[in-house]
Computed example of a mutant assay.
Amino acid sequence: MTEGTDRRSPGAAAVRELQGVARFTFHEGKLEEFKRLSAQCMEIVRTKDTGTLQYDIHFNDDQSECIVLERYRDSEALIEHTAHVADLMQAILATGSVSGELLGEPSAELRAKLDGSEVRLFTPFQSM
């Protein structure tokens, strides 16, 4: 593939996919609250989301930190997911310090929703 993305290539469908990485460092005593809330979130993902392709939660050895790996079919799927878990987000974010990255080419609508957020956007350069 050449620099950037070639939407005519066989992998063009994958270009619409978005990947997210969220990193949490938990506040003292908030791990169990995070686990409880993330279980609710996972149930929502499994039962309501139609375009979430991956939603994995990983802890370090002492469970003081975690990484959430997310993958969405496209921008609309991420917008849908965000709407489904909106009621839980304030409580989840209160359990620790959070940083995040979004990888892909979000739609104009999703870009507008990300404006002013702490999420860092990385757009494709090369892929196979």
Rank of each mutant, 00 (worst) to 15 (best):
M1G: 15
T2I: 07
T2M: 13
T2E: 07
G4I: 02
G4L: 00
T5D: 09
D6E: 11
S9G: 09
S9L: 14
P10K: 11
A12M: 11
L18K: 02
Q19D: 00
G20D: 09
G20R: 00
V21E: 03
A22H: 03
A22Y: 05
R23D: 12
T25L: 10
T25K: 03
T25M: 10
H27I: 09
G29Y: 00
G29T: 00
G29F: 02
K30W: 04
F34G: 01
K35G: 06
K35V: 10
M42C: 15
E43Q: 08
E43T: 15
V45K: 13
V45T: 02
R46A: 12
T50I: 05
T50R: 14
T52L: 02
Y55S: 06
Y55R: 12
H58W: 12
D61L: 11
D62A: 13
E65H: 14
E65N: 12
E65P: 01
C66W: 00
C66Q: 03
I67T: 15
L69Q: 12
E70H: 10
R71C: 06
D74P: 04
D74Q: 11
S75K: 02
I79C: 11
H81V: 06
H81P: 03
H84S: 03
V85M: 03
M89R: 13
M89C: 03
M89N: 13
I92E: 10
L93Y: 15
L93C: 07
T95M: 02
T95D: 13
T95E: 02
S97F: 15
V98G: 13
S99R: 08
S99K: 14
G100V: 14
G100H: 07
E101A: 07
L102M: 08
G104D: 11
G104F: 02
P106G: 04
R111I: 03
R111V: 09
A112D: 05
G116Y: 11
S117D: 13
E118D: 13
V119M: 13
R120A: 15
R120N: 06
L121W: 12
F122W: 08
F122E: 06
P124I: 05
Q126T: 02
Q126L: 13
Q126D: 08
